[in-house]
Nucleic acid binder design. Sequence first.
DNA 1: AAATTTAACTTAACAGTGTTAAGTAAATGA
DNA 2: TCATTTACTTAACACTGTTAAGTTAAATTT
Lengths: 216, 216
Amino acid sequence: MKGEDKKTNRKEDVRKLILDAAKKLFVEEGYQSTSMRKIASEIGYSPTAIYLYYKDKGDVVYELHQEGFSLLKTYLMPLATVEAPFERLKALGRTYLNFAKEHPDFYEVMFMMKEPMVHLDNNPTNEMWEGGKEMFGFIIATIAECQQQGYFSKDNPQYIALQAWGLVHGLCSLYITTRLDKVGMENISELSADALLENAYKSFVSFVESSKNSKR
Amino acid sequence: MKGEDKKTNRKEDVRKLILDAAKKLFVEEGYQSTSMRKIASEIGYSPTAIYLYYKDKGDVVYELHQEGFSLLKTYLMPLATVEAPFERLKALGRTYLNFAKEHPDFYEVMFMMKEPMVHLDNNPTNEMWEGGKEMFGFIIATIAECQQQGYFSKDNPQYIALQAWGLVHGLCSLYITTRLDKVGMENISELSADALLENAYKSFVSFVESSKNSKR
DNA sequence: AAATTTAACTTAACAGTGTTAAGTAAATGA
DNA sequence: TCATTTACTTAACACTGTTAAGTTAAATTT
């Protein structure tokens, strides 16, 4: 069995070598200019060598997408210690926004690009976008706790969670695609994208806060 | 002057010919497989002929993006007749969602892709994402009217409009990138993406409705 | 009417992309 | 030692956007 282990270990090592090179190019030069050939030359391999370890480019992009979710987890971990559910929810939104701003490339591959989802469809394994579902589940659970404290309506927490996620994701994706800049400028107030993002989020939080115990 | 006019008319005609071919491929085969070569062969030209009428691919994609905003306008025009501002706002959200579902490719190029924004940055004309700003302005104006009727807080309408846009855009982009499918399945309730979208939007509307005159 | 210029294209080519098939050299097993 | 597997590389295909140079016909000028 030792030989077997050694073999799979070796295989895993090279996979990691390739993935790390891909990640490096990805964060330094962006997705657009991360080609199979560049990844290969980064580790001194020929382009086709990658195909011995990954099925195709979609496969390595999917792994990158998974790396992104690992990174997001390290951002969200500390939130588990926040006792008050609404405080936790606010921090969740903040952290999500920060993650998107600090790692726009990862955010893109995780939440904006079609490729990783297509890869999931083509590889009908039992895992169905685990990372995304886990994060969404965290929002749902937190919302449900908030409801018990009088926040939001008594609606299905899934729907409310989707509103929250949709809003924050919407802001992040408009920010990343520079559309927040474009609507902010020349608008008398002359607000920067960052200021718009900040103010919109704050305004949303206080809107939810103010509607506590309205109970529809 | 007649010669001049004839010349520019001819030039405009061919530009339209190219753009229509691009649009056809765009809606029938999607952005991914709309290449300069396919556009050219669609109208019986050689690939390089396009470059006599458009600077580069980004240029024709930008025009496609403009076509999208023309189309969106035809969707939004009828809303001007809705007197009650909150009714108009609800209809605006609905219409926006419908547009995204009926024309996902146009929606992508208008609100999700980076290319058209890069094109704007590289062509420093006086127009700064006119279509986007006009639509966002429509939301702001409607929100402002809603505020006068006791809806929302007395916050800057720009911030509230951005929340609304962010939420609806977030839902649309999660829908288009099939992420709503992925989080909806296997979730006991087993909701389809369409049902999730629908319920989240309805829940949001009734949340805003219920908080009327809370006045923070 | 003839010569020249300009307009509207095409052909060939470059540099890049993802990907497959075939070939090679070294390590391993019998 | 010989055969086989492992781990790669080289060459090639079919694309992509794009540029430079060449062609052909129409318009303009002389």
